[in-house]
Design a protein around this nucleic acid. Sequence first.
DNA 1: TTGTATGCGTTATCAT
DNA 2: ATGATAACGCATACAA
Lengths: 332, 332
Amino acid sequence: MNIYDVSKKAGVSIATVSRVLNGNRNVSDKTKERVLSVMEELGYTPNVFARGLGLNTMHTIGILCSDSSDAFLANAVYYLEQTLRKNGYESFLCCTGYELENKKNYLRLLLSKRVDAVILVGSHYLEANKADNDYIISAANEVPVMMINGYLNHPNIYCTLCDDYQAVYDTVTRLAAHGRKHFAFLYRSDSSSSRIKIKGFRDGMEAAGLTISEDAVRLCPNDIPSTQTILTDLYKEGISYDAILTSEDCLAVAAVKFAGTAGLRIPEDLEIVGYNNSLLCICTAPELSTLDNHVETLSITTVNTLMRVLQGADVPNKTMISNDFIVRGTAY
Amino acid sequence: MNIYDVSKKAGVSIATVSRVLNGNRNVSDKTKERVLSVMEELGYTPNVFARGLGLNTMHTIGILCSDSSDAFLANAVYYLEQTLRKNGYESFLCCTGYELENKKNYLRLLLSKRVDAVILVGSHYLEANKADNDYIISAANEVPVMMINGYLNHPNIYCTLCDDYQAVYDTVTRLAAHGRKHFAFLYRSDSSSSRIKIKGFRDGMEAAGLTISEDAVRLCPNDIPSTQTILTDLYKEGISYDAILTSEDCLAVAAVKFAGTAGLRIPEDLEIVGYNNSLLCICTAPELSTLDNHVETLSITTVNTLMRVLQGADVPNKTMISNDFIVRGTAY
DNA sequence: TTGTATGCGTTATCAT
DNA sequence: ATGATAACGCATACAA
């Protein structure tokens, strides 16, 4: 079942069939209708490989994400896929994990599949060591590279991020205005976004005239119970806070649970702020106040930008959107 | 940069280059090495379209999932993608939403992309009306169709499911043994898996010699607060339960929150059981007891089965795995 | 408006 | 062990 079968049955050449297929208007309405009805009748579908071979594209975008079971990333992947398909593009999904070597391999793999562009989802695609980002830059020499929550200033790389720095900075300012003095910032992994948040935290503290205690900025394990244990142990040692900011809602969940067992009142004794406005926020009691980074907007903006890039438009290298402070029960 | 460039530079024919590329051993070690080094030097990558055109496959599997931002589905997608790639296959992801018409279109779209197989993730791909599943059956005429948590008995359709019926049935039995009498079952949408769970609930109740009250089996809205409100309103009307089973952890979360506001003690006054063993379980206080449906095992089993199917092995149409009751704070 | 011929980069089937 | 060549199914430049 190919274009020849259709052409034969319709009594035209394959060129005409191809024209009908591609909406070329140099076809009389009569023949067009005939061809279309034959296609219908035969259930003809053009072969994407043959088409790709000639055009060297399959209208496919590669999505690289470290872990699609992470709520934030999963949401991003969802919105990306939906928006891409609305624009006539398919999505190749690759879950790379967090190892640099794997990220490199999977990016190379996507390029070898001749994707039209690559989207790197999440701040984990930006290494602390600058040279380790060369693989992204070299990919940008072949196709447009879109980054969500990562920033790399280079031609053919386009970044969409939320302003994590400002969000944390402003939150410190806000809680300091409540009279909070003993701040902690919990983060879960050493990503570029974590580093930016930490900077916002430090600068916000300084601007508020507060000193950051030795142990205030803390890398936490991946699971909620361990983080809770850490906070409890600190508390027993006499190290306590009246404001805990986090890089992830799940860390804030751990903080809420810690407060519960330690008998601390929220938000009177302790204010807690999550990050991402995920489903977890309304599962705790009290519900989590959090910083919403607008994953939907980030994703849709990324696709829109990409479409403009593919159309050859001149597009800014960086698009920044602001976060929202969502007030619920753990901070006001 | 194609196979001709390599052959020219290596001083061999394209046939030989192709043989090296595909690990054909009818090549002398000497020429093989030479060809390989030329490939390396030129940074040659075979063109996937040309290859696909000849072989009529790109080693790509289509994944259909209604909503990759749902925690269970996101996890499944993650494990599927990982396992597929380990087996040398790429993943085309399609998020269809819940509309039948969209599911049909996206499935057709995937087939037109010449995927080697299709995986339908989640019980939402099985319509209550049998005729509405014909689109799946017709897809199975073209490629193997794998279903996760959906069962359709048809050639070239292979299903991997967890035993939702037994899980709910056993849970009713278990809680009835604690002396619980007033059961409710909350579910979130009318999927095949919901229907099966409800059947397990009804049969379990009957086996325990308990009567199901009029309002016990209840379709709940998508968000936690609304569900909580419903339970609260019922409670105010004097309708209360001492055991609440659910089809989703998030419904159990709503139940926990309801119990909190209503002043009911968990689990003394009310036992609550979630479903999926998601991250939500350890966010509530007390933490959720739940039924773990082993999403990782489901996903990996599906891919393994698919690989055997693609190798032409004779594979059973249905693989069923059992759930685990996870004891935490809301039921014992 | 329509048809013919060619190229796209592989793999596979023959020869040699 | 290696080479020549025919598919594979489409798009397109050119001819008519």
